[in-house]
Design a protein around this nucleic acid. Structure first.
Lengths: 109, 109
DNA sequence: TAATAAGGTTTATAATACAAACTAGTCTAT
DNA sequence: ATAGACTAGTTTGTATTATAAACCTTATTA
């Protein structure tokens, strides 16, 4: 019987963290999202959202575009990258697989 | 349309953390488990497992019983508590719910 | 009796999540 | 025209955390 527990401890933690999981899932359904939209969606504080976004960008999972409306007002838009999409779907695939095995293991044990 | 992203950021983090998620799921299928068995199951180092167990115990999710074989050799057994069982099943319920909503949102958006 | 092993715990450290404080510019009221 | 409040974020400080290294106690082996 294959046991899912080692796999569990090796989940992609960059994505697994709840705030980032929320952000990544939201972004995977949007072609593009604004900073404030993401903030409202997730309920995170600005500072917290900002630092999570930085981490995702550093990993190459999202692309952050800072534009200036009429060259003055900052307006940040965020997109998921192909890299980010595939990391997210890998995460879900792995998670679902683990969950299946876990359920089976529960019944056997 | 209900959006799951705020709920996501509020998942029970004590359980959500991968190492502890593994431990809790393993324990929920065992009436009782030994320390070394858990270590092998999860692949965690002793120190790491020990500190995760302490946190789960402090939360009342597990019960740790330290016995001494022939009054000499330590032999630690671990059980999930009713409290822990219900926290775990709440976690999965919430997680599955969130996942459902997420899938629907993906399709709509 | 020195060395190694078993079964853990404690300590040290590096990374993290988070919010408070800050920045830079705009808008409004007086 | 300038004080005050607002917008859209970023940076900084802090408290918590995950992790492994070092340690402890007893038993076993050489």
């Amino acid at each position: 019987m294959i046991m899912p527990f080692k796999e569990m401890t090796r989940l992609n933690k960059l994505i697994h963290e709840p705030a980032r999981l929320a952000v990544m899932n939201a972004l995977s359904a949007c072609t593009v999202a604004e900073f404030l939209f993401l903030q409202e969606l997730t309920g995170l504080t600005k500072g917290n959202l900002s630092s999570h976004l930085s981490k995702l960008e550093k990993a190459g999972y999202i692309h952050i575009d800072k534009q200036f409306v009429r060259k003055k007002i900052p307006h940040t838009t965020i997109q998921i990258t192909p890299n980010g999409q595939s990391a997210l779907s890998n995460y879900w695939q792995q998670f679902d697989h683990i969950r299946e095995l876990t359920k089976k293991w529960q019944k056997k044990a």
